[in-house]
Simulated scan of single mutants.
Amino acid sequence: METIKYIERASGETKTENVPSEGMLKWLYSSASGKATLHLLFKRKIVSALGGWYMNTGWSAKRIPGFIQEHSIDLNEYEISNIEEYKTFNEFFYRKLKAGARSIGEDIVSPADGKILVFPTLKDVSSFFVKGSEFTLNSFLRNEELAKKYANGSMTIVRLAPPDYHRYHFPASGTASESMKIKGHYYSVSPLALRGSLEIFCENKREYCTLTTADYGDILIMDVGATMVGSIIQTYSPGQVKKGDEKGYFAFGGSTLVLLFEEGKIHFNPDLIDNTQKKLETTVKMGETIASPINPV
């Protein structure tokens, strides 16, 4: 497998991603023996449950200093900046930002820190992923009515790697529905696993809600779990929410947020479209503008 390149939005530079457990992921997702092991063991809940259990123990806290150093994480932007105050690795993993650590931009903003891909139409997905035709809204949403609603719409994928801030927020103000759960497995959402297909999104554990807005129509927000994600925790209450309000957080592991927009409602920012067309993700921070309305009310 080739290295994973991405664009750093702030500088415009092309960089190479440091993928945690890269060797094991390559084995699991690209070799015959690895794929057999993946289907027999790693996709199953018990593996992620055991991983989640360990990350909630005091023993796991010993991993924090090395993780911070390896990934150059700046704790000064978080509520708790003293490493000693984190009693478990999971406490550190879903750490909270300080108030005002992220500015909230105009229009539609990124719901999380991570790396983003944008698709102005669902047809664009197959041009990015080798096996994009395997990704269908019917299998992803498991709801025919919703699949029809977003069939000709737009989609963005925000991928959270383990070093990223793992709380996620609302991309716009509006009325949020209750969260609906879809049962599934626990495949990795690393780019090494996703490089071939988005089908993994249709098989992993996930939850979604609909955010009804004045300017952008109904935005569907899907939270996708992955290997070693013991929990998807929703911290919001259904009803009126403001852009930038916290929606929830993921426990340990890489995770993904998928946003679906109705047809004719939004424009993605040109730099994000250009980079995606070059088959490159772009780094984003929670609160950065990623799209604007076509016909604002």
Rank of each mutant, 00 (worst) to 15 (best):
S255P: 03
G105A: 12
S21T: 08
A193F: 00
Q234L: 12
Q277I: 04
K242H: 13
Y168S: 00
E144H: 12
N138A: 15
Y187S: 00
L146R: 06
V241N: 03
G244R: 01
T227V: 11
R44C: 03
R167F: 07
S139D: 13
Y186S: 03
C202P: 00
Y54G: 03
N204T: 04
S237G: 09
T136W: 00
A32N: 12
L122C: 08
G132R: 04
T156K: 06
G264W: 00
S179K: 07
S179P: 05
F250W: 08
Y186M: 07
T235V: 08
Y6A: 06
K243L: 00
V19T: 10
G12Y: 08
T283R: 02
F93D: 02
F268C: 01
K205F: 09
M55A: 12
F170T: 07
E203Q: 14
S126G: 11
G100I: 07
L280C: 07
T256L: 06
A147S: 14
A99I: 13
Y150H: 01
N204R: 05
N269C: 10
L257A: 04
K45D: 14
A101G: 05
E77Q: 15
D107K: 05
Y150K: 03
S30G: 05
D271C: 11
E84R: 14
L75K: 09
V241Y: 00
P293E: 08
K15C: 15
N76G: 11
E79Y: 11
M228V: 05
K96W: 11
A99M: 15
N152S: 12
V19E: 09
F128L: 15
I233S: 01
L75D: 04
I200W: 03
T276D: 02
G58Y: 12
K279E: 04
F201N: 06
A161G: 04
Y186Q: 05
R102N: 13
I233R: 02
Y249I: 07
T3H: 13
T210I: 13
K45I: 13
I80W: 11
